[in-house]
């Protein structure tokens, strides 16, 4: 089973992407999509990085919803900051100490930070202990760090790492 179907999640995702790409739901295209979804992971097996395990799928769903709402809010916040006076902004670099270990969790955290209010992830230090983040307008660096750790890092740790 494991050898015949190496990535049970990737296969349907690729099939759906194929159906979106051809913009049709004909039976032939569904079949071709499933075939492609099986063949691509099967023949590229050697190039894949370590296997990802999701421990809590429900938390992942809730996390996605939170991030989606935050992205919408972020845009209004950033739009207001851009339209306001540029000299009143207080940009700052903030180093966030990481509790995460796995690659996928760290990269998802960095992407989430880039898409949410007024912060862009800039650098992961070589020892993977800190993530340097640039914030557009920050009053209190400590509360920003605490907010990011509580809102994004904690659920990611629960989802991807065994506690």
């Amino acid at each position: 089973m494991r050898r015949l179907l190496p990535h049970p999640i990737v296969t349907p995702v690729l099939a759906v992407i194929w159906l979106l790409l051809v913009n049709s739901t004909g039976a032939g295209h569904i079949l071709l999509g499933i075939l492609l979804g099986w063949a691509i992971p099967f023949f590229t097996l050697q190039f894949w990085p370590d296997k990802v395990t999701i421990y809590k799928p429900l938390t992942l769903l809730r996390f996605t919803a939170i991030v989606f709402i935050d992205i919408l809010l972020a845009n209004f916040i950033v739009a207001r900051l851009i339209l306001g006076s540029p000299s009143r902004l207080k940009p700052a670099f903030v180093a966030i100490p990481l509790a995460l270990k796995s690659d996928i969790a760290i990269s998802l955290l960095a992407n989430t930070i880039s898409l949410t209010p007024g912060t862009v992830s800039a650098l992961l230090t070589a020892d993977r202990q800190h993530l340097v983040v640039h914030a557009l307008d920050v009053d209190d660096a400590a509360s920003l760090i605490a907010a990011i750790k509580e809102r994004y890092e904690k659920p990611l740790k629960e989802i991807f790492e065994k506690c």
């Binding site: 992205i71 919408l72 972020a74 845009n75 950033v78 739009a79 900051l81 851009i82 540029p86 000299s87 902004l89 940009p91 880039s114 898409l115 007024g118 862009v120 800039a122 640039h134 557009l136």
Partner: peptide, 17 residues
């Protein structure tokens, strides 16, 4: 905006949405 790092914020968020 006035320096590169603050300029980065506009295109990544507003333009994407």
């Amino acid at each position: 905006l006035r320096d590169f790092y603050t300029r980065l914020h506009g295109p990544t968020k507003a333009t994407t949405l």
